[in-house]
Design a protein around this nucleic acid. Structure first.
Lengths: 243, 243
DNA sequence: TAGTGGTCTAGACCACCCT
DNA sequence: GGGTGGTCTAGACCACTAC
């Protein structure tokens, strides 16, 4: 409620409005105050309010009607991917209403395959660090993720890799880089015997397969990954606003 | 290049900049003019330029670096879903580099199932119009889509339904409504014999299954759909910018 | 007609990067 | 230091909707 000037005002207003929607201060289907009322309440300009509302509208959280008002979208429950959760599996699980946890299955050093080298813009055979991790939603294993990082990117003085970190925290700590964006392919795959066993699921049943590459702000590939997601437990649900 | 005032300035600038990137005026990895240069060139305010660039950055098309400049993202080729293409299959196919076409397989009138009634907020058994359509990428069948619309929403005077229209055009013409947003579940499925036959693909092979509901701006469900996408031909590739 | 959101402007100050 | 993007303001005018 109280607005500081150390954190961007728009970020704070964003958090406050989301919190109010979550708590039901603005109930599903209900109306939000007008832009001018909000700008008065928070003592910020209408433009600032508008950037916040624009973002929430793009995520489908609110619906804006010219000449009428702004409404809380009541059909938005259980949406977990406001297009920021696909490569943040912990958040994806959290947004789906489960408690996320990460189990590190293996951390190995090996030569890169040709395919990996191509994706990561390195020479085939160059050493890479391969992380195999299992994500849980509450007690259920739901995502098996394999991430590959070029050795050359890793700071050897940063200590032993901790496989339970979120990927951006991992990169931050061991590569001193920030992930800027990611490109991912969503595909349909099938659980082979090993994967089915790890995910505690039937062999030959369909799974979502997510292939992803993370880039830093200099547009260099940092990590590539290949993950299997049990979509019987964890839905991939997303909203798209028209235009 | 020439700016009118009848169409929003931001939209025109957006189109022009995208076109320049597409044509290589701003080559992959290259730098765009600064915000102030662009605002001078188009004779619009910097704020307007920024809204355009912000949108392009959110889609991953450009990368912005404080204190440096704005760059064309070179890793963005073949990305087909800037999170606006999932429920616009024609555009999805187009963005993937194919020529889209739609084949109407069947248009039938029937009673709604319990599940459909729940999704569409109608009574089970109420009449619905069921459209079954096949999307082609060039010559290959890639998406089998089934859409269901409550009869009560359809204007009987609008004539015989044309199954080759895009869904939003269809709704516009026969329901006089505009689609405001959509909620979709992306899942992994398997091609049964019939579906495999229609898609000209192996039975029991994995397919992406997309379940979707379209809403209008009054937040009423208009259409629900269930589609099978052959992801061996048509990739679902998306970009996500950090935060 | 009054009030809402949609568009756009002109300008300020800041944080950051390059040289 | 000079330029770039990041944040924010105050105010204008328009298009639309509900009453």
């Amino acid at each position: 409620m109280t607005i500081t000037r150390s954190i961007p005002v728009a970020v704070q207003v964003n958090q406050i409005l989301r919190e109010r929607i979550r708590l039901g201060v603005y109930p599903p289907g209900g109306k939000l105050p007008s832009e001018s009322e909000l700008s008065q309440e928070f003592d910020v300009s209408r433009a600032t309010i508008r950037t916040v509302l624009a973002r929430m509208a793009a995520e489908g959280l609110i619906l804006r009607k010219q000449g009428d008002g702004t409404y809380v979208n009541e059909h938005i429950r259980d949406v977990n991917t406001h297009l920021g959760g696909l490569w943040e599996f912990s958040r994806l699980i959290e947004n789906s209403g489960y408690q996320p946890s990460i189990n590190s299955l293996s951390i190995t050093q090996r030569a890169s395959t040709e395919h990996e080298a191509h994706l990561l813009d390195i020479q085939p055979g160059n050493e890479v660090l391969s992380l195999r991790r299992l994500f849980f939603a509450d007690e259920d294993p739901v995502i098996l993720a394999t991430n590959v990082i070029p050795n050359a990117r890793i700071d050897p003085t940063a200590g032993e890799p901790d496989g339970r970190l979120r990927i951006h925290e991992f990169i931050q700590r061991y590569c001193h880089r920030k992930i800027a964006y990611a490109v991912s392919d969503v595909r349909a795959g099938v659980a082979d015997y090993e994967i089915a066993h790890i995910l505690n699921w039937q062999p030959d049943s369909p799974l979502l397969k997510i292939e992803i590459i993370f880039y830093d702000r200099d547009n260099s590939p940092l990590v590539c990954g290949q993950s299997y997601l049990n979509d019987a437990i964890l839905r991939l649900r997303l909203v798209q606003a028209w235009e």
